[in-house]
């Protein structure tokens, strides 16, 4: 088996162009589990965790550009946690400190798990994913990148270089249900972000469909019932809002939860997130 270490993004482009079947290793928190279970037959691996460019992030005015190898830990703490609070909240729920020290935002996206904890936040924020290969670069919406359960639209020779995440002025919430108080795969999760300047509310759901998804119907509906000047929401709208959230979900029954519990809790999370951000108008 080839084991290669990429030293720069250019180097990585070349190594992938040479042999596109080579697989990328960043934090390895999903990859190594699959290798150990022999679910993944690996002929060549390129370690990308030493590429300085991929480990950087920078704040460009109204957005941050986060390199794909920035770790959950770095997002959970430090300046990113105030710039994108919901992303930090979701990062905190992932695995153990050891996992968060090594797992990366690029890995969370590329793995494309229905339960990927950062994905609902990135969806709600309208983040863009920068893809690169030797032949060039392209930019995708998160829902264009993620095509199904653990599948993505990356070509074999492409890699995720960075994620552009808008920095919004307004409260953000990430809530996740799991039977354990930490270090648990989500049974349901919900991200709600607001932009008080643009009077925008974004809502996305995790673990209730094949891929994390926006709840656009709920977004449209509740937008009509929000008073952005007073940060209040119409009390009469809540019941329908919860129903719309539940209807955006299409959960499965599995050993982690029944679909009925997932449907129930996703509505509750929507209401609770809403009440943390907006006061109820009497």
């Amino acid at each position: 088996m080839d084991f290669l270490i990429a030293s720069s993004t250019e180097d990585l482009c070349e190594l992938l162009a040479e042999d596109p079947t080579r697989q990328l290793l960043a934090g390895g928190t999903d990859f190594m589990v699959e290798v150990n279970f022999r679910h993944r037959d690996v002929s060549g691996v390129i370690a990308i965790d030493r590429i300085e460019d991929l480990k950087q992030w920078r704040h460009d005015g109204d957005s941050v550009l986060i390199g794909s190898c920035v770790t959950y830990r770095e997002i959970e703490r430090g300046p990113l946690s105030t710039l994108i609070p919901a992303l930090a909240q979701s990062a905190r729920t992932i695995g153990s400190p050891q996992i968060r020290n090594t797992g990366t935002i690029g890995g969370n996206l590329a793995t494309a798990s229905p339960a990927g904890d950062m994905i609902p936040v990135l969806l709600a924020l309208g983040a863009l994913v920068n893809i690169r290969s030797k032949s060039g670069t392209r930019q995708l919406q998160v829902d264009e990148l993620i095509t199904g359960v653990k599948t993505n639209s990356l070509q074999e020779d492409e890699f995720i270089e960075s994620v552009r995440v808008p920095v919004l002025r307004g409260p953000q919430e990430f809530l996740k249900v799991g039977p354990r108080n930490a270090m648990v795969i989500s049974v349901t999760s919900l991200a709600m972000v607001t932009d008080i300047d643009k009077e925008y509310i974004g809502i996305a759901l995790g673990s209730v469909s094949a891929s994390p998804c926006r709840s656009k119907e709920a977004e449209y509906f509740i937008s009509e019932n929000i008073d952005w000047n007073n940060m209040t929401v119409q009390s009469g709208a809540i019941e329908n809002f919860e129903r719309l959230i539940r209807e955006s979900a299409n959960p499965i029954d599995d050993h982690r939860s029944s679909s009925a519990y997932r449907t129930h809790t996703i509505g509750v999370l929507g209401r609770r997130a809403l009440f943390r951000i907006f006061r109820l108008e009497n």
Binding site: R92, E173, L175, K176, V177, R180, N181, A182, V184, L269
Partner: peptide
Amino acid sequence: LPGGTGRTTDKSH
């Protein structure tokens, strides 16, 4: 509170 790092639960719940 219940839910832990999942931030699901406020004191009122």
